[in-house]
Amino acid sequence: MQIVFMNRLSKHSGGSAGDFAQLWIGEEEGVWRVGWRDCGEAPESAGSLWYEGSSWNEMLGVYRHELAAKMGEGYRPLIDGVFHEEAAVTGRNQEQMKLQYYSELHGNETVYEELCAWRRKRSSLERKAPYLLASNRLLRLLSAYLPRSVEELLQIPGVGEAKAEQYGPEILAVTSAVERSHTFPLNWVSEEIDDGFFTSWLYKQREMKYKKQLDRLRQRRELLQGIADGCGLEELKARSHLSRREILEAAEELEKDGYMVDPLIQRELEDMPSGEQEAVWNAYRELGDVFLKPVLHKVYGEEAARAAGLDMRYERLRLIRIRYRRENAGAAAVVEHL
């Protein structure tokens, strides 16, 4: 096996040197391996293989995720490695990350729960997903800093003029009702944070980010294999533990990225009459392919939204839209070439 990358890391405890470890990437006949070896008292029993396989993207995802976890534990490379994606955290971005870090340590749980209840009620009234109104991170920030005015509210990362105008009074009714011991502006936060703990927290955030990316990569691979095996939505649901809607959304993304998902489309549409499929296709031509509801109403009538089998109809609309967009993209490419 050829070692293509190796780095040594150290973990310090207090003021004295602590543990050392080696991180390596090797390749042999198209197979990638990523490994970690502790260089302690018994290094022969401290090695671990993080990844072994043929996918460069998965190998890199595993590398980044596992390395971020180790750096969250306090390990630091003796020489900066070219494979580790270092996102610069400086200036305003660093200030915002420190505000987030502090809020996770010092949030008011009672206020947070009240804000969650407000979000649920408001999202139900507006028929929007809760995260579109406010993320959990924003609610944590609000529960920690407890703004009392619109001016203070606008200093919270994630709150802009539009959000403050639309939801400010309701949010402030919750946050201003609680006593606080700090002041605005929030430039005092940096002085309250231990830089070492903050750095480890940053790597923990990176670890979670890479974990999501890796899970998504593996999920896509499983879906592609399932589609190639001729699986339908229900079988893919059992394999991937995703909902049918999530699988369709993933299929749309796969199609955009150049993967063929026709076996899935063919299987799911085999019981749909050709005349019905043609009607949907013509509706996309007339109304466009951005929104599904106008196409649903065009093909099935205004009462379709209250009829039985609505989920199945939307699934079929999505599947036909994949084909429609592919054909339109191909036609546009031919015109551009001419």
Rank of each mutant, 00 (worst) to 15 (best):
L142N: 01
L264A: 01
A238C: 08
C231E: 14
E41N: 01
R318Y: 02
A88H: 12
R239S: 08
Y112Q: 11
Y51G: 03
L296I: 10
Y314C: 00
A87L: 11
K11V: 01
T199L: 12
I322K: 03
G258R: 09
L9H: 14
M71H: 06
L269H: 13
Y203T: 00
V189Y: 11
A228V: 01
V280C: 13
S48W: 10
S190I: 04
P43Q: 04
S45I: 07
T90I: 02
R137K: 15
L319S: 06
R316C: 00
L105K: 15
G74E: 05
S243Y: 14
V31K: 12
R120H: 07
C116N: 13
R76L: 07
Y63E: 02
V261K: 03
R321H: 07
D19F: 08
G53H: 08
Q266L: 11
L217Q: 09
N7K: 06
V62Y: 12
G26R: 14
G74A: 02
E207L: 00
L217C: 04
L115A: 07
S103H: 07
V159N: 02
Q96Y: 15
D80G: 01
G47K: 12
E29R: 15
N328F: 04
P147T: 06
E109H: 15
L186A: 01
R316H: 14
Q155C: 12
G72W: 12
G258N: 06
R218G: 00
R267K: 15
Q213L: 09
E86C: 00
L132N: 01
P294F: 10
E104I: 03
A305C: 02
S181Y: 11
G14E: 03
K237Q: 15
E165D: 09
L67S: 05
A162M: 13
V335T: 08
L310M: 12
